[in-house]
């Protein structure tokens, strides 16, 4: 019993790595994550003087630089903030921190490069195993859990039909997520369910949605927009066909991609879809009785105010 509490305590206060997207286009995700942390009594400590995780773009230019950039974030969390858990809500950041951890564990050359660059840049190098990287989903699941949410939300999302969209970076490639696919209680890379679990605990009705881990074309959202629009339209139409009112998202790139290409599909291809997009933290915030404005819902491109009024959530 003691162990369990200790384990939960470890996640109640985590280093928070918001990342570039949450400072810009994904602002609603940042605002709502902080709002639910406050409401649930969880403590988020921003990683001191963080930098970009490297994202896909730097990886394409020079793969080991992405490892270095992510390792610097982890190094700051460990050495400047004394953290042993880093929580990243952005799928891209989460993926890259995980990938850096994997590379540093399995490839001595990566560690060598990180050590060398860290010395030149004048900070402590990050060593594999010093910190644990978790996603915002793990964070809620590990601290409050379904039982806690049931208690606090009293099923407030009842009647809301949700399609849970996880995207690519949260589950693929599976080898960089050693803690997943470990049977009951752990996340599945093939059929992820953490978001389903949390929202169901808050009373939402999860629809049978086959494209949970489909790709939204986020990498080419601007550079190959027509392809992205096709991929997004497919996701939006599948969500509507499964009867969803809203798609719950957990990644700023997916979220703004879905919103942007919903508009673009209508403009360029004349294909209109009505389904709304909300971050899962915004949905949980509504369930906890926080006002839509405090969750940054009005800064989303997709206007869900009518739906929320209809479902008595706003």
């Amino acid at each position: 019993m003691v162990d369990l509490t200790e384990k939960i305590m470890k996640y109640r206060e985590v280093a928070y790595y918001s990342g570039c997207a949450l400072e810009g286009s994904g602002n609603g995700y940042d605002v709502s994550t902080r709002a639910i942390a406050k409401s649930l009594g969880l403590h988020l400590k921003d990683v001191t003087n963080w930098n970009c995780c490297g994202a896909m773009e730097v990886k394409n230019i020079e793969p080991k630089l992405q490892t270095y950039l992510s390792s610097r974030v982890l190094s700051n969390a460990v050495n400047l903030d004394g953290a042993d858990v880093v929580m990243a809500p952005c799928n891209g950041c989460y993926h890259n921190l995980k990938k850096a951890e994997y590379d540093l564990t399995h490839d001595p050359k990566s560690q060598e490069t990180v050590d060398r660059l860290s010395a030149k840049a004048g900070h402590e190098p990050y060593k594999a195993g010093q910190a644990e990287t978790i996603h915002a989903l793990d964070w809620i699941k590990k601290t409050i859990g379904e039982e806690g949410l049931k208690e606090r939300t009293k099923g407030k999302l009842a009647g809301l039909k949700v399609a849970n969209y996880y995207g690519c970076m949260y589950v693929r490639p599976r080898h960089i997520f050693p803690e997943k696919d470990k049977g009951p209680g752990s996340e599945s890379t093939n059929r992820p369910h953490f978001m389903d679990d949390l929202l169901a605990a808050a009373g939402a009705e999860n629809v049978e949605f086959p494209l949970k881990t489909a790709c939204c074309g986020g990498a080419h959202t601007l550079s190959d927009s027509d392809t992205s629009t096709k991929l997004v339209l497919n996701i939006l139409q599948a969500a509507e066909a499964s009867g969803a009112d809203v798609i719950a998202t957990e990644c700023p790139t997916c979220h703004s991609g879905l919103e942007m290409h919903q508009v673009r599909a209508e403009k360029r291809f004349g294909r209109k879809t009505r389904v709304k997009m909300l971050y899962f933290t915004q949905l949980l915030g509504l369930a906890l009785g926080i006002s839509p404005r405090k969750l940054g819902i009005h800064t989303n491109i997709s206007d869900s105010s009518e739906l929320l009024r209809e479902k008595r959530l706003a």
Binding site: E23, G24, N51, E57, L69, L222, S223
Partner: peptide, 17 residues
């Protein structure tokens, strides 16, 4: 796109959407 994104990261440590 990759080059523009990386340029901002290398120059400032962060990007601006």
């Amino acid at each position: 796109f990759d080059k523009e994104f990386s340029r901002q990261v290398f120059e400032r440590g962060k990007i601006e959407d």
